[in-house]
Design a protein around this nucleic acid. Sequence first.
DNA 1: ATTCAACCTGCGGTTTACCACAGGTTGAGT
DNA 2: ACTCAACCTGTGGTAAACCGCAGGTTGAAT
Lengths: 201, 201
Amino acid sequence: MFRQGIISLLKFDPGLSVIGEAANGSELLKTLNSRQADVVLLDIQMPVMTGTQTLEVLRQRFPDPRVIMVSMEFNPSIVAMYFEKGAHGFIPKGCDVEVLVEAIYKVKENGNCYDLSTELAARLNKHSLENFENTYVLSSREVEVLRLACQGNSNKQIGHMLRIAERTVEFHKTNIYLKTGLKSLSDLIAYGIKNGLGSCN
Amino acid sequence: MFRQGIISLLKFDPGLSVIGEAANGSELLKTLNSRQADVVLLDIQMPVMTGTQTLEVLRQRFPDPRVIMVSMEFNPSIVAMYFEKGAHGFIPKGCDVEVLVEAIYKVKENGNCYDLSTELAARLNKHSLENFENTYVLSSREVEVLRLACQGNSNKQIGHMLRIAERTVEFHKTNIYLKTGLKSLSDLIAYGIKNGLGSCN
DNA sequence: ATTCAACCTGCGGTTTACCACAGGTTGAGT
DNA sequence: ACTCAACCTGTGGTAAACCGCAGGTTGAAT
């Protein structure tokens, strides 16, 4: 329904053409086999595959199309993480469609883009980028732990899956708590789900 | 963005007119003060107020307009809960817009409506409604506990807020686990968030 | 070669979540 | 008066999450 809506809105812009749509990550990959895209709009909350996983596979198998993540949330820790994984843009769903159209053009011209009206831009200029990353951005290992936690696994199970000790999972979780400022497991899960780490949402 | 999309799609149907839109629950209530609506489309995942809370207040203060809940998920336990709280329709976002339009007409004519292609309809006919409810549908107390849990509160905190013993919170949680078939706290939180119980998603 | 960050781990110990057992209240319906 | 469902609560115990302390590895950059 969301897809139908966005597509019908994008059709109002004569400079853009929608060459395909997909209900989930694996459909997307199939579509890209037959058609070439300049820009891919990737919803973070998807069924079948998580946004993170889809992005990873997408960048590996189809390096050409540029990617804009579309999300309900806008957390610096998460936004930066998606850029590190190869995204070129990040747009919260709260934006007007005009902003989205602008972003599509910008990203198509080899630019990067995230909603500039936000605090992140300011922070990236003020403090050194590195310091910011070490303080707020989740490492890929941490994202992995968070993802598995969001999918209902216990620390022990996560440790088993990643072939690390339960203690190490706790260690990563502690760091996630520090970086995100969250305090309870409930908050952690809620945070993860809203940011697109979840089995089949 | 989602709203803009839906509205542009609904405009294609000459029998419908969109008389207003709102970004969250309290905006909705303000809008209804000045304009009368036949049907309200209420997204379950909203900022500021949860879907449940908005529905409750809406039904109290504006009993006339009929309400269709729009959600990513479709869990019998939750769907039935929303009907009990006064909703008249329930549409998953995965549906085509045609289904939504159909639903709007149906609900406007004083009918109730949920996606008939689903298992729920079958179940409601087969087993007695009462048995179904006792087995699957969350009571209002249980929903309240789940909501507070999704907002990051511990059992102790929840007990404090609802003025009941911590033990009683555990009791309700156990029942939620039984009714939903979930097993871990992570699953529980994920379930709640996806179904519109969450602080400001 | 050294430094540094990210990763990994073990040993306690505390807190929180959960569960089995056992029971009390209250209000609506027969 | 009785039933029944939903609600509430205590005791005591297990498992899971979390935390401080203390330390080891590895790979990339200076």
